[in-house]
Design a protein around this nucleic acid. Sequence first.
DNA 1: AGATGACAGATTGTCGGACAATCTGACAGT
DNA 2: ACTGTCAGATTGTCCGACAATCTGTCATCT
Lengths: 239, 239
Amino acid sequence: MEGTGRNSGRLSPMAEPLGQFASLHLELSSTVDRVAAELRRAVFDGELESGTPLREVALAASLGVSRPTVREALTVLVAEGLATREPNRGVAVSTPDPGSVRDICRARLVLEGAGVRRWRDADEQHKDAVRTALVRYTTAVRSGGSYQELNERHLAFHVSLVGLNDSPRLTAMAESLMVELKLALAQVDRLRRNAHDQADSHTALVMLLERGDIDGASEFLRRHLEDAENSIIQALGLV
Amino acid sequence: MEGTGRNSGRLSPMAEPLGQFASLHLELSSTVDRVAAELRRAVFDGELESGTPLREVALAASLGVSRPTVREALTVLVAEGLATREPNRGVAVSTPDPGSVRDICRARLVLEGAGVRRWRDADEQHKDAVRTALVRYTTAVRSGGSYQELNERHLAFHVSLVGLNDSPRLTAMAESLMVELKLALAQVDRLRRNAHDQADSHTALVMLLERGDIDGASEFLRRHLEDAENSIIQALGLV
DNA sequence: AGATGACAGATTGTCGGACAATCTGACAGT
DNA sequence: ACTGTCAGATTGTCCGACAATCTGTCATCT
């Protein structure tokens, strides 16, 4: 019934210049996306504590949208792991427990470790992404960026390590893990000091890589993640 | 407040006997889940070819449910990677291209390889899961199981390798990759012969592991996945 | 007293219909 | 040949409604 195997239906019948206008890019966002983004922001900013039930009607009234829209946004949040749905009982902000933090860090080690071990064979493009992410993190640290921004840059660096694998799916998984990790970090908001002294640690990691010491970098990363895991779990215990 | 994942949210305020009734388990499934399952089945069985648009009203009428329910099921499918949503244009069954197959296999190598390298330190429980998965696959091959069943057992074995990492999230990621892979395999349905000769290959892999030759098993897995990748991509080209 | 059963309130799951915004394709106009 | 316009189809979003389920309270029975 449909036209046979056309690879992708473009908008216009024109030949798609692609040379000109290549940089143009319109960001069309649905209402659901905006609601989900707002909820994410509220969770990360600590406005919604862990365990808070997210009532559909209340949210719909507050945000000025309908209940189905809120519902869809909530399923997005649940899929991301930021919230948990119990059948017939509704959705609530997830409570990060030590077990999941351990799990997340273990998964990170697998993804990031694989990236680090591929440093030699990685595209120059992805190596540059790591260097750039490092610079952006360290400058943010030195210029005294906000807690949110430091976290963002910090985790972006780790994601860039996964990017060395040159696999969009692995990178997407890493980003998903970072979202969950940000939730855990939002819980231990008060103990935010450990973000600073990690800049040097990351620089050392990249220097090991540039020197070609893959095994050293790998081991360094392992310890680095282990430390992060322990400090987060310890901080969680104090909440 | 929270249990660990599985046994959360019990019904009654009673003390939870747990000794008795431990095996009881009521499968409460929402309509959305059933619709999503039906769509998945149809995709894997080849009833819905790749690229087929999934119209909301038509599906709602066919399945005898309302449009919002279908909509939610479709977002589930999209989140799983089985379908693709283009804004204002609807949802269609994903078309696996060589690029994503390559990506999936590369990601698999990272996850499964990490599991294999942890064989020594892995829990006996997870090692047994690998052995069981192998047995179930080989017996299915010998007893001439259906194509669907062979695929299922085959991929389950690979997931069990990821299970050696002892990380629920990594396992979930692997399962998600396998779902996408099943979609690609459903496309090359006619060339299903390569499922047979891989049973020996898997047995050899486990034997290497049992012998403690981790490096050998690791390299073996790399080549095994590379072969799979090439044969799937080649088969895709013939469609 | 302790357990059982009934009931109201609240919340979700699902439904049907409705309307605006957008895309597609064809047709007419310059 | 390019542009403007319009009808049809489809999605995105909204509203209102109802049944099913969970929670907590209270009355009832042994």
